[in-house]
């Protein structure tokens, strides 16, 4: 196997007495989907937030392409290629879909201190935005305010924002939650295509989707890694079946 793109090493994070992340290590390799599963409150979102820099870890290291990014800000990590989606979508509701995606395109062009040229007629922004919206099937929603979108559409816009960054690694926090079976199927198809462009760390509760998509799986329970391995290994792992899958599958 090649070098891991993203490495998390012995990460720890406590909220007071609650150990939300306990000695977590995991790798994300090029071309793979690495699923992160575990019961509610296991610390999955907290882990993603530490990787992206929204939360500082108490100890441990995060490496992106071998480079230590633990001390960098959220923006610096994003510039280096970390794209993410939030469990509770975080967009500007008051702005159109186009405007929300445009800011990410603007960011990778590295040009936010330009004061004169209007963005509303700037083809170097509008064209990439249009391409991404097309890919996600959002073209006819481009001018709609995010506040008016359905739950599933908001998730797609989050994806569009993450993709607009042309990320090196994607961190997706329950991208298909509440999407319905049709939306989930579309998202599964999209992710299975995407993983060849960019590796994905995927938090997901839908076990069918997880085992359809994931190359490898980490199981998180009470902040710690209970098991880590290929999808097949995890499916048949006795402790996992007992601690987690047993509740979900029959």
């Amino acid at each position: 196997m090649s070098e891991p793109l993203l490495q998390v090493k012995q990460l720890n994070k406590a909220f007071g007495a609650l150990q939300a992340t306990r000695d977590v290590s995991l790798d994300l390799y090029p071309g793979e989907i690495h699923a992160l599963i575990g019961p509610n409150g296991a610390g999955k979102s907290t882990l993603i937030s530490q990787i992206t820099g929204n939360l500082p870890p108490d100890s441990g290291e995060i490496l992106l392409q071998g480079e230590d990014i633990t001390g960098l800000t959220v923006a610096e990590r994003a510039q280096r290629g970390l794209g993410r989606s939030f469990q509770i979508s975080s967009l500007a509701d008051e702005l159109s879909v186009r405007r929300n995606v445009m800011i990410a395109v603007q960011a990778i062009q590295g040009s936010s201190f330009r004061f004169w040229k209007p963005v509303s007629s700037d083809a170097s922004l509008l064209e990439p935005v249009a391409t991404i919206l097309e890919r996600l099937g959002l073209s006819d929603r481009a001018g709609t305010l995010v506040a008016e979108l359905s739950h599933g559409e908001r998730r797609l816009v989050e994806m569009a924002c993450a993709l607009a960054l042309q990320p090196r690694a994607l961190l997706l926090d329950e991208p298909m939650a509440g999407m319905g079976s049709e939306g989930t199927a579309r998202m599964v198809k999209l992710l299975s295509e995407l993983k060849h462009e960019v590796p994905i760390l995927l938090i997901e509760h839908d076990m069918d989707a997880v085992f359809q998509l994931a190359d490898r799986v980490s199981v998180l329970v009470s902040g710690g890694v209970l098991a880590q391995g290929t999808a097949d290994e995890i499916r048949n792992h006795p402790a996992v079946r007992e601690a987690y899958l047993g509740e979900e599958t029959t």
Partner: peptide, 23 residues
């Protein structure tokens, strides 16, 4: 109307989104 304005608007409406975009 410029790129700066777009960034400022986002810094106001949702700074987390702006930072997540790398600004």
């Amino acid at each position: 109307g410029s790129r700066f304005g777009a960034a400022l608007t986002m810094a106001h409406l949702n700074p987390v989104r702006l930072a997540t975009a790398g600004i």
